[in-house]
Design a protein around this nucleic acid. Structure first.
Lengths: 125, 125
DNA sequence: ATTCGGAATAATAATCATAATCATTAAAAC
DNA sequence: GTTTTAATGATTATGATTATTATTCCGAAT
């Protein structure tokens, strides 16, 4: 394993994730980085998104129109998804999972995360 | 259009959905009904699930392991998903969307629904 | 009962996002 | 610089879902 740093492309993917709040899809990242890395492969994007997700650097938010959307903001927060254009917007609430509801659910051993998504129409649509 | 009733197969799919709280996938429904309808086609299951969703009879809950899971219980409630076995369990909370958080979100015109999913390990795993 | 017409279906092929493969390249470690 | 391992590009495979199309079903009109 590379001890201290990511490879150049992985670094670029992660930094792009950090620089945006648009909750990108793999395709969006690929298109965005292609000018800078003309030899970038879509497979590399998928591979690194999964890797970044596995090591906790990014989180999968939801699937919109069949495409997985990711978020580099890993502090707990919720999301809004526009049903018309698919835009994903961060939603911050004072509540955390314990305040939202009981984590003691019938048939459940342990709860360690939650995902709250609002649906509706965004101001552009 | 058939005025009053669903076709036999559509009726069977919907009744199976009503009779279970396992939040079935298309594949599960297909396998379950195949003995009763040996000529049932998987495409028919997909077609009717979408149709039932479009007319509001059932709701899509979430995607687990790449498979869409549905619920015939359409009154507002939340869900728990086991990260190990993929089981989906109903979660009932007193809260509704207005109590959970602000529906007045920056960049959002209107919110009309929400989806709250808890993740963790179920008692069987 | 027979015919008619639209809805529903089975079978099949197409789609499309994602995953796996594998030969090659890049970058650490030494 | 050489070795060794990780990362990548190109390509193919996978698998859930959707579209297509010819056929079947089923109620209604005759």
């Amino acid at each position: 394993m590379r001890a201290q740093n990511y490879s150049r492309k992985r670094q670029a993917i992660y930094e792009l994730m950090l620089s945006t709040d648009s909750h990108p899809s793999a395709e969006w990242i690929y298109t965005s980085l292609k000018p800078t890395f003309p030899d970038l492969s879509l497979g590399t994007v998928y591979r690194n998104l999964k890797l970044l997700e596995d090591n906790g650097s990014i989180k999968s938010v939801t699937v919109v129109d069949g495409c997985e959307r990711y978020d580099a903001r890993i502090t707990p927060h919720s999301h809004f998804v526009c049903k018309k254009c698919g835009r994903v917007i961060d939603v911050f609430m004072s509540d955390n999972v314990d305040e939202i509801g009981p984590t003691n659910i019938d048939g459940v051993k342990s709860v360690d995360s939650y995902n709250l998504i609002f649906y509706g129409i965004c101001e552009n649509c």
